[in-house]
Design a protein around this nucleic acid. Structure first.
Length: 555
DNA sequence: TCTGAAGGCGCC
DNA sequence: AAAGGGCGCCTTCAGA
């Protein structure tokens, strides 16, 4: 059973749709939270335009749902997927369902934390009546039913939607954050917080003073690449950029403090005290996740930078008293995904002993673990030069199925064709202007060829990164369900719950006495995700799991 | 004065 | 050590 929620002229309408797609009931809803809590007992799948518009207020009211369809996210998948290319949905022109998300982050997340989960927030974002959710839902149902592999795409839609629930719940629960520990880290690196936010902390200023004196540039602004380049040039140092790795090659007394300055300035600007004042409230970091935000289906963030949380400050992520953090990351996820989706038994076998790269060495394909790693990265990213490019042919001989899969994805992209992940997410069409055509200057032709190759590198990576993202969504959906099974209270933050996600890594905040069981369930969830994507194939997705008091202790 | 691009760097 | 894919966010800087 499905219940479609949408708004018409300010009223919330709830349309109950049976599994045979018949509308069996329509309600006008006055108290949304009470309605959802009541009907949730029937275990429907809730259908709404955008989880980030509906779910936060339900969570704030203490109401959770088990399953949903996020119509906007699903629409994006169905419109582009090669599996549903013939559907009415895909053939129709673009409409309201193709619009980007409604900026949930800006309303919900910026410093106005007093209105964090304001029940009224959705109405302030509405401009006129919503698009018809019931009609869209029916179009989507038809698209799935009419496609050659409804199970694949259906699984993807369910996983994508489950991810949207996880994102909202992680934001609601927040990542446990010790402001005191964070402050200690910042102070150790930078010195005490300056009285004025714009001022440079003591250690940053000290590094800058050294740079300025050693370059004899008292007015130097090291944050300005142009200014810095000029000062370096006057000191006799020729560089093509001011990137750290370029500077590291230089021999000059100013370089060391300059690199130190860059490191500290980065920490201060990205995750310093101002960042904490903005994003951490009551010792909880609440970033704004954007499910499906990347073209490949990976998540993105639109505030807080959760997916770039530097290792330097992860020790500030501290479990509550009596609680633990269970940190799990999937080892060598993307190469394993590549092996599994290609059905390359040899590469799957190479990964079965635990370390895929060691297994590749053992098979005799390359000589060292480092070579194996670099060659695999080259295969997934499309390296053409350097050591990685040289090693590729060896890999191709040893694992022809895996390598030919990514190679043909690259060729397809170069021709402007669409490529598709395991569960059915397709890339956008590229422009097939890579071939030489008459009346085009050779410079233009070269540029067009480079564009086409670049798109080929994108599609090559798309199928691997996108399928890895699908695995991660299935993994998280399973973890979420399993955590609920371990929770006798029913209140999200009273039991073990997901608090962080980083592409191939999750953190669960768990009561200490449950930590071992949580770890076991996370392992089971990984195996379940593997089966969901690859069926009976013996592909393994081993995890590294740590039960710790703070995130800095993991890895 | 505001906006968008570019340089740079954090994460996977 | 960088090269290849995907991102977000900070600062500077040029142009409207």
């Amino acid at each position: 059973m499905h219940i479609v929620l949408d708004r018409t002229h300010g009223d919330v309408r709830a349309t109950t749709v049976s599994d045979s797609d018949e509308i069996v009931r329509v309600d006008t809803v006055a108290d949304l939270a009470a309605f959802v809590a009541d009907r949730e007992r029937e275990h429907p799948r809730w259908v709404w335009d955008d989880t980030s518009r509906w779910y936060p207020q339900l969570l704030a009211a203490g109401v959770r749902v088990d399953r949903c369809f996020d119509l906007r996210l699903c629409h994006a998948i169905l419109r582009a997927s090669s599996l549903t290319a013939d559907s009415d949905l895909a053939l129709a022109g673009t409409g309201p369902w193709d619009a980007p998300p409604q900026q949930s982050g800006q309303v919900v997340s910026r410093p106005s934390h007093s209105t964090l989960f304001d029940l009224d927030q959705t109405s302030t974002r509405n401009e006129g009546a919503d698009a018809d959710g019931v009609a869209e839902f029916q179009l989507q149902r038809a698209a799935v039913a009419g496609c050659p592999e409804p199970a694949r795409i259906g699984r993807l839609l369910a996983a994508e939607s489950a991810g949207s629930l996880v994102a909202a719940e992680m934001r609601f629960a927040g990542l446990p954050w010790s402001s005191a520990q964070h402050d200690a880290i910042l102070t150790a690196f930078l010195g005490p917080r300056p009285a004025v936010d714009g001022a440079r902390p003591q250690k940053l200023q000290a590094a800058l003073d050294l740079v300025r004196s050693r370059l004899e540039a008292p007015e130097l602004n090291p944050d300005s690449p142009a200014d810095l380049m000029r000062a370096l040039g006057l000191a006799g140092l020729q560089v093509s950029s001011t990137r750290s790795w370029e500077l590291r090659k230089l021999k000059h007394p100013a370089i060391e403090p300059l690199l130190e300055y860059k490191k500290l300035a980065r920490l201060l600007a990205s995750n310093g005290w101002v960042w904490r004042d903005t994003w951490v409230v009551n010792d909880r970091f609440r970033p704004d996740y954007v499910p499906g935000g990347a073209a490949t289906g990976r998540w993105a963030t639109s505030g807080g930078g959760a997916l770039q949380l530097p290792r330097q400050i992860r020790a500030a992520v501290v479990a509550d008293d009596g609680w633990k953090l269970v940190v799990a990351d999937a080892s060598q996820l993307e190469p394993r995904i590549l092996a599994a989706m290609a059905g390359d038994r040899g590469m799957i076998e190479a990964g079965s002993a635990g370390d895929l790269y060691a297994g590749i060495v053992a098979s005799g394909a390359v000589e060292t673990r480092d070579q194996a790693k670099v060659a695999m990265l080259g295969a997934m990213y499309g390296a053409t030069t350097g050591e990685s490019g040289r090693l590729m042919p060896k890999l191709a001989r040893a694992y022809p199925r895996a390598i030919s899969m990514v190679e043909s994805a690259a060729r397809a992209g170069e021709r402007g064709e669409v490529v598709t992940t395991r569960l059915g997410r397709s890339s956008a069409p590229g422009s097939s202007n890579g071939s030489w055509s008459e009346g085009v200057s050779s410079a233009d032709a070269t540029r067009a060829r480079e564009r086409s190759r670049a798109w080929g590198r994108f599609t090559r990576n798309f199928i691997v990164q996108g399928t890895a993202a699908e695995w991660a969504l299935c993994w998280m959906a399973s973890i979420r369900r399993r955590m609920d099974d371990l929770n006798d209270h029913g209140v999200l933050t009273d039991g073990p719950h997901l608090v962080f996600f980083l592409h191939d890594e999750v953190v669960v905040h768990a009561p200490a006495h449950l930590a071992d069981r949580v770890a076991a369930e996370i392992n089971e969830a990984a195996a379940e995700a593997g089966r969901l994507l690859f069926g009976a194939l013996p592909a393994e997705f081993p995890l590294t799991i740590a039960i710790v008091d703070d995130y800095g202790q993991a890895k």
